[in-house]
Design a binder for these strands. Sequence first.
DNA 1: CTGATGACGGTGC
DNA 2: GGCACCGCCATCA
Length: 125
Amino acid sequence: MRPLLKNTPIYEQIYAVVRQIPPGQVATYGQVAAIVGGCTARMVGYAMAALPYDTDVPWQRVINRQGKVSPRSSGHGSAVQRQILEAEGIRFDRQGRVDFEQVGWPGPDWAWLERHGFHPMPPLI
DNA sequence: CTGATGACGGTGC
DNA sequence: GGCACCGCCATCA
């Protein structure tokens, strides 16, 4: 997917996508990046780290590809993140991982993409 | 303008 | 499956 909105700060586009993740489901950094287009998983991580404490963006629903909450460089924010997710009904296994088959976010629906000016990624090759 | 700062993920052992 | 490398770049002071 590639955004048509040219002047929106990339972080705002990332936040717009993250806000679509419903309670009880999780997405990976790479998944969000693929939907936004033109940005990498790492950038999504940076965008999450830049959020203020009182944000309305459900940052806790974005985890890494391993199915685990990413460790923070400082503080115990990852423990808080896990608690919030468990409160939403998400189960973690012994290794602290979730089951994407069960709680993985399928992605935004077509209507939402249309409303936000996204269009299908051009075919590779 | 310059430099510091981060919540990743693909690849190759 | 796990682990170590390494590329990566928008923001902000």
